[in-house]
Nucleic acid binder design. Structure first.
Lengths: 189, 189
DNA sequence: GGTAAGATACCTACCAGAAGGTATCTTTCA
DNA sequence: TGAAAGATACCTTCTGGTAGGTATCTTACC
């Protein structure tokens, strides 16, 4: 948008870049991926289209950056949880469940879920997530394979999905209870 | 799509309408919801934009018709399964699991899943699905409530989601085995 | 049964706006 | 001073949508 005084404000490229990513995510989250246009994102970030294109060569690059950024956050979250876990066996699965069904995620968890859904709805982005996921599973194959652990992670996905769908009316499943039960199962297997 | 001879071909409104719905679904399924433009849909259906707008007053109407059509198919599938089930207790849950994880759905189940995902990714369409789902749950509350049955349906959702994400590389979970286990659980509860 | 009248189905041609993207200009920072 | 940060203006393409045409189908009446 036209802001003649924008020249004069302090240049904070990193912050602008972050803001662009956040705004893109927020738009996708609140109004669907279709609402993520170059115009809307740059406008929401208080920058012009030209500014956006300085940071991201193309729109695809922007949205891929959003995805990889999101995955990196989740990855860090999971790794931290694994590091805190004294028992290596099933640690990844526990971390995965906790991350997927975590409290900070949950209050507006539908929100984050919506973003994830938007992402995997797009074939091009789906690959990114699928590859990340399979890489993670492969990496923790020694400690986190077997039918029980796999089923636990699977149920976590389902719960996450359900909880997001139920967001507009309908009974929300008892996530904390389910989470505890799932984590308990990782010790039995 | 300029086809001067198109005037002369037989008029088959119902078939054209169906074709439009199918093509829209196929486009969403293969290239994401973003690929569903009135141009692309009408072209794929061998009709002009004007022809499409004769059947559907707006694009939104078209895509909502796709959704309700899809839900109607699933509903018929589930109802048929319930009718075949001798035991009323948990019949809906069994039908739901079977439908979600059914073989005819499974070979390219990623396909159908992708369509569902595309649908619930769009906030406006999500409501349709959520309402349908909660109406169904409410309708079978007498025979299909309780934590076990709910968890079973939840796990089915998760399996469906997982199996769809794993489609491009990565180990596909053993769906038939899981399905049998889930259905067995509906009798225990 | 034939035919005129009207509805239905579908096409052609267009539009206003928004999409992503580029080229080029200032301004700020190191 | 030179490179990075960001603004402005513009282009092309495609978007959903409309107006008005022309066929085909259906019904009513004789």
């Amino acid at each position: 948008m036209t802001d003649p005084s924008a020249y004069r404000r302090r240049k904070q490229p990193d912050l602008v870049r972050r803001t662009l990513l956040d705004c893109a995510a927020k738009l996708a989250l609140e109004h669907g991926l279709g609402a993520v246009t170059v115009q809307a994102v740059s406008e929401a970030a208080g920058v012009t289209k030209g500014g956006l294109f300085h940071h991201f060569p193309t729109k695809q690059a922007l949205v891929e950056a959003v995805v990889t950024d999101l995955l990196a956050q989740v990855e860090a979250d999971i790794d931290a949880a694994i590091a805190r876990d004294p028992k290596p066996q099933g640690a990844y699965t526990r971390a995965y469940v906790a991350s997927t069904l975590s409290d900070p995620l949950l209050p507006e968890s539908g929100q984050w879920a919506a973003l994830h859904i938007s992402i995997i709805a797009e074939p091009s982005l789906r690959r990114l997530v699928a590859e990340w996921l399979s890489a993670r599973v492969e990496r923790h194959r020694d400690t986190d394979s077997g039918p029980v652990l796999e089923m636990v992670r699977l149920a976590a996905d389902g719960a996450w999905l359900a909880c997001f769908l139920r967001e507009e009316g309908g009974p929300v499943p008892d996530i904390p209870a389910l989470r505890d039960r799932l984590i308990a199962m990782t010790f039995a297997g």
